[in-house]
Protein backbone atom coordinates (compact mmCIF):
# COMPACT_ATOMS: atom_id res chain seq x y z
CA UNK A 1 0.00 0.00 0.00
CA UNK A 2 1.09 3.54 -0.67
CA UNK A 3 1.33 6.00 2.21
CA UNK A 4 -1.77 7.97 1.14
CA UNK A 5 -4.70 7.56 3.55
CA UNK A 6 -7.75 6.19 1.72
CA UNK A 7 -10.94 8.13 1.05
CA UNK A 8 -13.10 5.24 2.29
CA UNK A 9 -15.64 5.75 5.08
CA UNK A 10 -14.79 4.46 8.58
CA UNK A 11 -15.16 0.67 8.73
CA UNK A 12 -15.40 0.19 4.95
CA UNK A 13 -14.34 -3.28 3.81
CA UNK A 14 -12.52 -2.01 0.72
CA UNK A 15 -9.54 -0.99 2.86
CA UNK A 16 -9.17 -4.48 4.32
CA UNK A 17 -9.39 -6.16 0.91
CA UNK A 18 -6.95 -3.66 -0.63
CA UNK A 19 -4.43 -4.51 2.08
CA UNK A 20 -4.90 -8.27 1.71
CA UNK A 21 -4.17 -8.05 -2.01
CA UNK A 22 -0.96 -6.14 -1.27
CA UNK A 23 0.06 -8.67 1.39
CA UNK A 24 -0.47 -11.60 -0.99
CA UNK A 25 1.45 -9.93 -3.83
CA UNK A 26 4.30 -9.14 -1.43
CA UNK A 27 4.42 -12.68 -0.10
CA UNK A 28 4.32 -14.15 -3.60
CA UNK A 29 6.85 -11.56 -4.78
CA UNK A 30 4.58 -10.61 -7.68
CA UNK A 31 4.24 -6.84 -7.42
CA UNK A 32 6.52 -6.15 -10.35
CA UNK A 33 4.57 -8.39 -12.69
CA UNK A 34 1.02 -7.51 -11.64
CA UNK A 35 -1.52 -5.44 -13.56
CA UNK A 36 -4.79 -4.70 -11.77
CA UNK A 37 -7.92 -3.26 -13.34
CA UNK A 38 -9.93 -1.00 -11.03
CA UNK A 39 -13.69 -0.57 -11.43
CA UNK A 40 -16.13 2.29 -11.28
CA UNK A 41 -17.47 2.49 -7.75
CA UNK A 42 -16.04 3.53 -4.41
CA UNK A 43 -12.81 1.71 -5.30
CA UNK A 44 -12.35 3.68 -8.52
CA UNK A 45 -9.25 5.30 -6.99
CA UNK A 46 -7.60 2.01 -5.99
CA UNK A 47 -4.56 3.00 -8.06
CA UNK A 48 -3.95 5.82 -5.59
CA UNK A 49 -3.42 3.21 -2.86
CA UNK A 50 -1.81 0.22 -4.58
CA UNK A 51 1.89 0.34 -5.30
CA UNK A 52 1.72 -1.85 -8.40
CA UNK A 53 0.48 -1.21 -11.94
CA UNK A 54 -3.25 -0.51 -12.01
CA UNK A 55 -5.47 0.75 -14.77
CA UNK A 56 -9.10 1.78 -14.78
CA UNK A 57 -11.99 0.56 -16.91
CA UNK A 58 -15.46 1.82 -17.77
CA UNK A 59 -18.20 0.72 -15.40
CA UNK A 60 -18.46 -3.10 -15.35
CA UNK A 61 -15.92 -3.55 -18.14
CA UNK A 62 -12.86 -4.53 -16.10
CA UNK A 63 -13.00 -8.22 -17.20
CA UNK A 64 -12.94 -7.12 -20.86
CA UNK A 65 -9.98 -4.81 -20.25
CA UNK A 66 -8.22 -7.49 -18.17
CA UNK A 67 -8.79 -9.98 -21.00
CA UNK A 68 -6.97 -7.70 -23.42
CA UNK A 69 -4.09 -7.07 -21.04
CA UNK A 70 -3.65 -10.75 -20.19
CA UNK A 71 -3.72 -11.84 -23.83
CA UNK A 72 -1.10 -9.28 -24.81
CA UNK A 73 1.04 -9.82 -21.69
CA UNK A 74 0.44 -13.45 -20.70
CA UNK A 75 3.36 -13.47 -18.27
CA UNK A 76 1.69 -10.85 -16.05
CA UNK A 77 -0.64 -11.52 -13.15
CA UNK A 78 -3.83 -9.71 -14.16
CA UNK A 79 -6.78 -9.25 -11.85
CA UNK A 80 -9.98 -7.21 -11.79
CA UNK A 81 -11.29 -5.59 -8.63
CA UNK A 82 -15.03 -4.96 -8.75
CA UNK A 83 -17.98 -3.95 -6.62
CA UNK A 84 -21.37 -5.63 -6.83
CA UNK A 85 -22.95 -2.81 -8.82
CA UNK A 86 -20.01 -2.97 -11.20
CA UNK A 87 -19.86 -6.76 -11.50
CA UNK A 88 -23.41 -7.96 -10.88
CA UNK A 89 -25.39 -5.16 -12.55
CA UNK A 90 -23.85 -3.15 -15.38
CA UNK A 91 -20.99 -5.65 -15.90
CA UNK A 92 -22.95 -8.90 -15.81
CA UNK A 93 -22.20 -9.69 -19.45
CA UNK A 94 -18.47 -9.07 -19.14
CA UNK A 95 -17.93 -11.21 -16.07
CA UNK A 96 -20.01 -14.13 -17.35
CA UNK A 97 -18.37 -14.21 -20.75
CA UNK A 98 -14.86 -13.87 -19.29
CA UNK A 99 -15.63 -16.84 -17.08
CA UNK A 100 -17.17 -18.75 -19.97
CA UNK A 101 -14.08 -18.15 -22.11
CA UNK A 102 -12.00 -19.53 -19.28
CA UNK A 103 -10.01 -16.32 -19.43
CA UNK A 104 -6.87 -16.81 -17.36
CA UNK A 105 -7.50 -13.87 -15.04
CA UNK A 106 -8.54 -13.42 -11.39
CA UNK A 107 -11.45 -11.36 -10.10
CA UNK A 108 -11.78 -9.93 -6.61
CA UNK A 109 -15.47 -9.15 -6.17
CA UNK A 110 -16.30 -6.93 -3.20
CA UNK A 111 -20.01 -7.35 -2.46
CA UNK A 112 -21.41 -4.73 -0.10
CA UNK A 113 -25.00 -5.07 -1.30
CA UNK A 114 -25.41 -1.46 -2.45
CA UNK A 115 -24.12 1.10 -4.95
CA UNK A 116 -21.83 2.82 -2.49
CA UNK A 117 -20.26 5.49 -4.68
CA UNK A 118 -23.50 6.94 -5.98
CA UNK A 119 -25.34 7.08 -2.68
CA UNK A 120 -26.58 3.68 -1.57
CA UNK A 121 -29.02 2.65 -4.29
CA UNK A 122 -30.27 -0.93 -4.56
CA UNK A 123 -27.91 -3.36 -6.28
CA UNK A 124 -28.90 -6.78 -7.66
CA UNK A 125 -27.25 -8.15 -4.49
CA UNK A 126 -29.32 -6.09 -2.03
CA UNK A 127 -31.08 -8.38 0.42
CA UNK A 128 -34.86 -8.79 0.55
CA UNK A 129 -36.08 -6.42 3.24
CA UNK A 130 -33.03 -4.17 3.00
CA UNK A 131 -33.61 -0.42 2.82
CA UNK A 132 -31.70 1.46 0.14
CA UNK A 133 -32.17 4.91 -1.38
CA UNK A 134 -34.10 3.40 -4.32
CA UNK A 135 -36.04 0.96 -2.13
CA UNK A 136 -36.91 3.28 0.77
CA UNK A 137 -39.59 0.89 2.02
CA UNK A 138 -37.12 -2.02 1.58
CA UNK A 139 -36.46 -4.46 -1.26
CA UNK A 140 -39.41 -6.63 -2.21
CA UNK A 141 -39.01 -9.78 -4.26
CA UNK A 142 -42.34 -9.36 -6.06
CA UNK A 143 -41.28 -5.95 -7.36
CA UNK A 144 -37.48 -5.95 -7.34
CA UNK A 145 -36.53 -9.60 -7.83
CA UNK A 146 -34.11 -11.60 -5.72
CA UNK A 147 -30.48 -11.15 -4.61
CA UNK A 148 -28.39 -12.25 -7.59
CA UNK A 149 -25.96 -15.07 -6.85
CA UNK A 150 -23.33 -14.54 -9.50
CA UNK A 151 -20.96 -17.12 -8.04
CA UNK A 152 -23.54 -19.91 -8.15
CA UNK A 153 -24.44 -18.87 -11.70
CA UNK A 154 -20.83 -18.97 -12.82
CA UNK A 155 -20.15 -22.32 -11.20
CA UNK A 156 -21.82 -24.09 -14.14
CA UNK A 157 -19.37 -22.64 -16.67
CA UNK A 158 -16.62 -25.11 -17.63
CA UNK A 159 -14.04 -22.32 -18.06
CA UNK A 160 -14.40 -21.27 -14.42
CA UNK A 161 -12.04 -23.27 -12.22
CA UNK A 162 -12.27 -21.73 -8.76
CA UNK A 163 -14.93 -19.73 -6.94
CA UNK A 164 -14.90 -18.94 -3.24
CA UNK A 165 -17.08 -16.63 -1.15
CA UNK A 166 -15.52 -15.17 1.98
CA UNK A 167 -15.98 -12.21 4.29
CA UNK A 168 -13.96 -9.86 6.53
CA UNK A 169 -15.99 -9.93 9.73
CA UNK A 170 -13.27 -11.33 12.01
CA UNK A 171 -9.53 -12.11 11.91
CA UNK A 172 -10.42 -15.71 11.01
CA UNK A 173 -12.52 -14.64 8.02
CA UNK A 174 -9.90 -12.07 6.99
CA UNK A 175 -7.32 -14.87 6.90
CA UNK A 176 -9.65 -17.03 4.81
CA UNK A 177 -10.11 -14.16 2.39
CA UNK A 178 -6.37 -13.71 2.11
CA UNK A 179 -5.89 -17.43 1.44
CA UNK A 180 -8.61 -17.37 -1.21
CA UNK A 181 -6.99 -14.41 -2.99
CA UNK A 182 -3.69 -16.25 -2.90
CA UNK A 183 -5.27 -19.39 -4.31
CA UNK A 184 -6.85 -17.42 -7.12
CA UNK A 185 -3.50 -15.91 -8.06
CA UNK A 186 -1.79 -19.32 -7.89
CA UNK A 187 -4.42 -20.75 -10.24
CA UNK A 188 -3.71 -17.98 -12.71
CA UNK A 189 0.05 -18.56 -12.51
CA UNK A 190 -0.60 -22.26 -13.17
CA UNK A 191 -2.64 -21.17 -16.25
CA UNK A 192 -5.70 -23.09 -15.16
CA UNK A 193 -8.35 -20.55 -16.14
CA UNK A 194 -10.79 -18.12 -14.62
CA UNK A 195 -11.16 -17.76 -10.85
CA UNK A 196 -13.04 -15.37 -8.61
CA UNK A 197 -13.21 -14.53 -4.91
CA UNK A 198 -16.36 -12.82 -3.65
CA UNK A 199 -15.84 -10.94 -0.39
CA UNK A 200 -18.95 -10.02 1.60
CA UNK A 201 -18.01 -6.58 2.78
CA UNK A 202 -19.59 -3.94 5.03
CA UNK A 203 -20.92 -0.56 3.93
CA UNK A 204 -21.66 1.04 7.32
CA UNK A 205 -22.58 4.38 5.70
CA UNK A 206 -25.39 3.09 3.48
CA UNK A 207 -26.50 0.30 5.77
CA UNK A 208 -27.09 2.91 8.46
CA UNK A 209 -25.13 0.86 10.99
CA UNK A 210 -21.86 1.40 12.81
CA UNK A 211 -18.84 -0.62 11.62
CA UNK A 212 -19.20 -3.27 14.32
CA UNK A 213 -22.96 -3.68 13.72
CA UNK A 214 -22.24 -3.95 10.00
CA UNK A 215 -19.92 -6.90 10.60
CA UNK A 216 -22.58 -8.59 12.73
CA UNK A 217 -25.17 -7.99 10.00
CA UNK A 218 -22.96 -9.88 7.55
CA UNK A 219 -22.54 -12.76 10.02
CA UNK A 220 -26.22 -12.95 10.92
CA UNK A 221 -28.04 -11.95 7.73
CA UNK A 222 -25.94 -11.55 4.60
CA UNK A 223 -24.38 -15.02 4.78
CA UNK A 224 -27.86 -16.55 4.73
CA UNK A 225 -28.45 -15.17 1.24
CA UNK A 226 -24.81 -15.58 0.17
CA UNK A 227 -23.38 -18.69 1.88
CA UNK A 228 -19.66 -18.68 2.53
CA UNK A 229 -17.23 -21.29 1.26
CA UNK A 230 -15.70 -22.76 -1.86
CA UNK A 231 -18.39 -22.84 -4.52
CA UNK A 232 -16.26 -24.45 -7.19
CA UNK A 233 -12.81 -25.97 -7.35
CA UNK A 234 -12.47 -27.32 -3.81
CA UNK A 235 -9.94 -29.92 -4.82
CA UNK A 236 -8.56 -27.87 -7.66
CA UNK A 237 -5.51 -25.69 -7.85
CA UNK A 238 -1.78 -26.15 -7.52
Amino acid sequence: MKQAPTHYCPGCGHGIVHRLICEVLDEMNLKEKTVAVAPVGCSVLAYDYWDFDTTEAAHGRTPAVATGIKRVLPDRLVFTYQGDGDLAAIGTAEIIHSGNRGENISTIFVNNGVYGMTGGQMAPTTLIGQVSTTTPGSRRADRDGYPLKIMEMMAVLPGVVYLERTTVTSPKEVTKTKNAIKRSFEIQLAEEGFSMVEVLSPCPTYWGLDPSQSMRRIENEVVKAFPLGVIKGGDHGP
Partner: peptide, 10 residues
Protein backbone atom coordinates in the same frame (compact mmCIF):
# COMPACT_ATOMS: atom_id res chain seq x y z
CA UNK B 1 -1.80 -8.60 15.47
CA UNK B 2 -5.58 -9.10 15.41
CA UNK B 3 -6.04 -5.32 15.36
CA UNK B 4 -3.71 -5.05 12.37
CA UNK B 5 -5.78 -7.65 10.52
CA UNK B 6 -9.07 -5.85 11.12
CA UNK B 7 -7.86 -2.29 10.45
CA UNK B 8 -9.29 -1.06 7.12
CA UNK B 9 -6.80 1.81 7.05
CA UNK B 10 -3.37 0.22 7.52
Amino acid sequence: GLCVMMCPDC
